[in-house]
Write a protein that binds this DNA or RNA. Structure first.
Length: 490
RNA sequence: GAGCCGUUAGCUCAGUCGGUAGAGCCCCUGCCUUUUAAGCAGGUUGUCGCGCGUUCGAGUCGCGCACGGCUCACCA
């Protein structure tokens, strides 16, 4: 018989034996007085010589039987504590029940006074205990923990039980999101929620997931961005809004991409992209200060200083510095392609000049942007929702920011001229007809909203997952998403 | 979608030149009343990812497939 099945059956036999003895292995109620952390704290706070009695509950992580006494550790969400069971204190029946019917992985509660062992560990001297949940399968092995990456992702609960560092990443992730909310709330931003199921997707260049609503008999898309709905709210008179939520993009999976990911978008009326640069700098540095206690982070061996001001340079300057190519000297696709080729820069074919500029940038500049950097002034063709630069209408008031070589976020002075917006959508339609599957679809309903008047507005979006990667020094997005997308196992 | 690497006990891993599948932990039995990788003595574990082939004989060699990791492509 396979060992797992045998072991599972062993544990079921133990469970049945408990029921025969009138013990319910899955009681509904727990009667603890302290979390494990609170128990340790209570002992340390108590005056010398004063007895502190606690009832704690948690999962058995280790059991060390030494004849008529047994040490074990139980863990709850706050930490772990050692418990000490003695046959002479518990009586033979209770002690033997623990020895025979209880396994590592089970949950128990245990009550008794706290004491310090010979080696100094604060320990519960158990006078009473009770099983509160029986486990049927063994936990990962205690020495090496759980290393198998596939099992870690597919059975994240085992990863969280076995690997404390993993737990810490997700605790930090939560703190980061909380700190972002606090930062924005303190500045008068309103947190809102907009549709995830959308009749027309938009706000980014990406292929969507498509779904279908039976009652309405229509195709709906999972959102690829929040942008167009948040702008409707700006039009509606909410001057400062933000949304944190999942976007869904039907693209390949990589160390930097998960099909669903967490993004934040922030819009501020009567502001422009310069204001958004200041906002990003302040947000990142103050969140770092709050959750890490410093504005200097270490990412892949690089010391990165998030304190404002961040470096700013235009995309033209950046490309010129790293490749020697002045994109303004090569304003058509062929010429730019030639220039890159002459310098031995291998690029893949792109649908238009703007995308080729972006590609050239990604190849030559992006990996060098370790310290926080704003790259400004993007080609208009790849920025259909951003306002043109007054002095250079083929460019827009847009920036992306880069930290640790990672593209972190995107922002612009929002386009609020509805007639220009219509032209941009029409240009996108042409791109789509030319085979660009990521071209932005025409959105008449959004144009209708904008035609009612939209104030000058600064908008910003960034990936929360990538921010967490930076703050936790992780190179794979799967390490900061609890349940990353994997192929289903046959 | 392409390339490279990986998949052996519940976990972490060995496995030589193609010749009866291993270790530690876990688990089971016994001893053990301050241990903490508890210890001591004994014992059990397997579709070697799946399939086909080569061979007297395949964990090992070949081909195909699945899943995972990394790189590329695409994107944030």
């Amino acid at each position: 018989m396979p060992e797992t099945r045998e072991r599972r059956e062993q544990r079921i036999a133990k469970l049945e034996r408990l029921r025969e003895l009138g013990i319910e292995p899955y009681p509904a109620r727990v009667h603890r007085t302290h979390s494990t952390a609170e128990a340790l704290e209570a002992f340390q706070q108590a005056p010398e010589g004063q007895r502190v009695t606690v009832r704690v509950a948690g999962r058995l992580m280790t059991i060390r039987v030494m004849g008529r006494s047994t040490f074990a550790h139980i863990a709850d969400g706050s930490g772990r504590i050692q418990i000490y069971l003695r046959r002479d204190l518990l009586g033979e029946e209770s002690y033997e029940l623990f020895r025979r019917q209880v396994d590592v992985g089970d949950f128990i509660e245990a009550e008794g006074p706290l004491f310090r062992t010979r080696t100094g560990e604060i320990t519960v001297e158990v006078h009473d205990w009770r099983l509160i949940a029986k486990a049927l399968r063994p936990l990962p092995e205690k020495w090496h923990g759980l290393k198998d990456v596939e099992t870690r992702y597919r059975q994240r609960y085992l990863d969280l039980i076995a690997n404390e560092e993993v737990r810490q990443i997700f605790i930090l992730r939560s703190k980061i999101i909380r700190a972002i909310r606090r930062f924005l709330d303190e500045r008068g931003f309103l947190e809102v929620e907009t549709p995830i199921l959308q009749p027309i997707y938009g706000g980014a260049a990406a292929r969507p997931f498509t779904t279908y609503h039976n009652a309405l008999d229509r195709t709906l898309y999972l959102r690829i961005a929040d942008e167009l709905y948040l702008k409707r709210l700006i039009i509606g008179g909410f001057d400062k809004v933000y949304e944190i939520g999942h976007n869904f993009r039907n693209e390949g999976i990589s160390v930097k991409h998960n099909p669903e990911f967490t993004a934040i978008e922030i819009y501020q009326a009567y502001a422009d992209y310069n204001d958004m640069m200041r906002l990003v700098e302040e947000l990142f540095s103050s969140v770092a200060q709050e959750v890490l206690g410093t504005t200097t982070i270490t990412f892949q061996g690089h010391e990165i200083n998030l304190a404002p001001p961040w470096r700013r340079l235009t995309m033209r300057e950046a490309i010129l510095q790293e490749s020697g190519i002045d994109i303004e000297e090569h304003r058509d696709y062929e010429s730019l392609w030639q220039a890159a080729e002459e310098r031995g820069i291998k690029l893949t074919k792109q649908p238009n000049w703007g995308k080729l500029v972006e590609k050239l940038f990604a190849e030559t500049v992006e990996p060098t942007l370790i310290q926080p950097t704003f790259i400004t002034d993007y080609p208009v063709e790849i920025s259909p929702l951003a306002k043109r630069k007054p002095e250079a209408p083929h460019l827009v008031e847009r920036f992306e920011f880069f930290i640790g070589g990672l593209e972190c976020g995107n922002a612009f002075t929002e386009l609020n001229d509805p007639l220009d917006q219509r032209e941009r959508f029409l240009a996108q339609r042409k791109e789509a007809e030319g085979g660009d599957e990521e071209a932005h679809p025409m959105d008449e309903d959004f144009l209708l909203a904008m035609e009612h008047g939209m104030p000058p507005t600064g908008g910003l979006g960034f990936g929360i997952d990538r921010m967490v990667m930076l703050f936790t020094d992780q190179t794979s997005i799967r390490e900061v998403i609890l349940f990353p997308q994997l192929r289903s196992k046959a």
